[in-house]
Amino acid sequence: MLKAHAEVSALARIGDPWHVTACSDALQAPIVVNAAGAWTDQVGQRLKRNPLGWYPNGAPR
């Protein structure tokens, strides 16, 4: 399933599937792709991943 233009409000791996809440929809998926573009680091923080150094508008905060 592809869900475009959907802000993720919750993301957790419980067992094998990922449990995702996006735009009030509860979803499960074996794989989640972070395609947030310049906001990739913000989404990655929810997964406790190291930042890549990408910033919206090209400027660090």
Rank of each mutant, 00 (worst) to 15 (best):
A38E: 10
Q42H: 10
H5P: 00
P30A: 13
A22N: 02
L47F: 01
W39V: 00
M1R: 14
G15A: 01
A4S: 13
A4L: 15
A38W: 03
H5Q: 13
L11M: 14
H5Y: 14
A35K: 10
W18E: 06
A6C: 11
A59F: 07
V8D: 13
S9F: 03
I14E: 15
S24D: 15
L27D: 08
A26S: 13
V43D: 05
K3P: 02
V32Y: 08
P60N: 00
M1C: 03
V32T: 06
K48S: 13
P51A: 06
I31Q: 07
M1Y: 08
R13P: 02
L47V: 01
A12M: 06
D25Q: 15
A38L: 02
V33H: 09
V8F: 12
G15T: 00
A36Q: 04
N50A: 14
Y55L: 01
Y55N: 03
P51W: 12
K48T: 05
Y55R: 02
T21P: 01
L27G: 11
C23T: 10
R13Y: 06
A10S: 08
I31T: 12
R46E: 09
T21A: 10
M1I: 11
T21N: 10
C23Q: 13
R13H: 09
Y55Q: 01
V20H: 01
P17D: 11
D41L: 05
H19S: 04
S9K: 10
H5L: 12
G53F: 04
Q45E: 15
A29V: 04
E7Y: 11
T21V: 15
V43P: 07
A6D: 08
G37M: 12
P17A: 08
G44N: 09
T40N: 01
A4H: 13
G15Y: 01
H5R: 15
A29M: 05
R13I: 02
G37E: 09
R61Q: 09
W18A: 05
W39C: 01
A6Q: 08
P51R: 11
P60R: 01
V8C: 13
I14H: 13
I31D: 05
W39N: 03
G44D: 09
R13K: 15
G53K: 03
E7A: 12
I14Y: 06
A10I: 01
P17N: 11
P56S: 06
P60Q: 00
P56A: 07
N50M: 12
P30W: 06
T21R: 14
S9R: 12
Q42N: 13
N34A: 05
R49E: 11
Q42R: 14
A29K: 02
H5T: 09
D25E: 15
Q42W: 11
V8T: 14
R46P: 02
G44F: 13
S9H: 07
L47Q: 01
G15Q: 03
E7Q: 13
A6M: 06
A38C: 02
D16A: 15
T40K: 00
N34V: 09
V43N: 05
E7C: 04
W54N: 04
V20N: 00
A36E: 07
P60E: 02
A12F: 04
R46M: 15
Y55G: 00
G44A: 11
S24Q: 14
A12W: 04
S9E: 12
A10T: 01
W54F: 12
D41F: 03
Q42G: 03
D16R: 14
A38K: 02
I14F: 05
E7L: 10
